[in-house]
Design a protein around this nucleic acid. Structure first.
Ligand SMILES: [Zn+2]
Ligand SMILES: [Zn+2]
Ligand SMILES: [Zn+2]
Ligand SMILES: [Zn+2]
Lengths: 166, 166
DNA sequence: GCACCAAAAGTTATCTTATCACATTCGGGT
DNA sequence: ACCCGAATGTGATAAGATAACTTTTGGTGC
């Protein structure tokens, strides 16, 4: 993730994104190698496409890009690559958007909360643990065992709030 | 909501659902009247269908029911009724399921967290405020202003955990 | 009652998102 | 070279959602 005190602010603020994306890709490659999972060309390219920005892309946006680069042009091409990356923790799916975003720190807390800026469309990952704890506690009092949680917020990032459409 | 100490447990446990549904419908009708909004036949029937169980139904499931009862059989019929009910707080949309569930206490905390049982498919509403507070706090430290939040958990309810598939 | 208007309901068509089923290719192990 | 399972490619189709337009309904002013 970008270099800054706060990873959320860092995601939305201008930053050396080349470095940011490159780092996430390297880390993903390393983790997949560890797990003995194959980062094939389509899969690698899919991850690179998602890493080009901090936005979330729909499966068909990804597919168009892949098709234009010589990969297959049928939906399963994109969906399979995305599913592979999601199941290995390299990409997250955003339920509110029906879209996918690259994980910036695969391996860490893999159950983040997502902050989606309605102005610039960027997505940041926030620490999900405290929020999940709160949810687990409330659910637990009703006898409900939480297994997976979706936590997604829509709002305005600091950069956009500052008027920053530049 | 069902009569019990804990509203979450009460939703999943067997209860006098007639009473439960009837109450929610009356309350919805009263609130809509207050607001000067019209609870037309399709809208009313849509709400009744959702209130038949604590499950979430897809728009097309609702549509099939409506069509079978003499209402229109085109998707907008269901989507419009559902959108009306959602925008007036009588129904909630579950992002994870692409489905809709009736609100059991319209007017209260209208930003609940949802607990979805993977075994019985029932959905309960939990107090969303403490969880949202936690989310707002974490986001705020990164300069992000939360406007709307989606909080949905999948897991196992107490009744199902107790082996209760009866 | 009647003309009028806006809201609601109906209908056709289309768009977006996602999955199925099956054929082909690729890559490692023998 | 042969085998086998994983990965990829393709055509078809399912599932979810909306756009655009017409008709009906229900209330308002006359
Ligand atoms: Zn970056
Ligand atoms: Zn922004
Ligand atoms: Zn009930
Ligand atoms: Zn259950």
């Amino acid at each position: 993730m970008p270099q800054s005190s706060n990873p959320i602010a860092a995601t939305f603020a201008p930053h050396d994104h080349q470095e940011c994306a490159h780092r996430a890709l390297d880390e993903a490659a390393a983790r997949l190698a560890e797990q003995g999972a194959r980062l094939t060309p389509v899969r690698r390219r899919t991850l690179e496409i998602l890493l080009e920005s901090h936005r979330a892309l729909g499966a068909y946006e990804v597919l168009d890009r892949l098709a234009a680069e010589g990969f297959g042009r049928q939906p399963p091409v994109a969906y399979r690559a995305l599913e592979f990356l999601v199941s290995h923790g390299m990409v997250h799916r955003l339920q509110r958007l029906n879209a996918f975003t690259a994980c910036l720190h695969p391996g860490d807390d893999h159950h983040p909360a997502f902050l989606i800026c309605r102005s610039c469309d960027k997505v940041a990952e926030a620490a999900g643990v405290p929020i999940r704890d709160s949810l687990t506690e409330i659910a637990g009092r009703g006898g409900f065992q939480v297994e997976r949680a979706t936590i997604e917020a829509v709002g305005l990032c600091a950069t956009c709030a500052a008027g920053g459409a530049e």
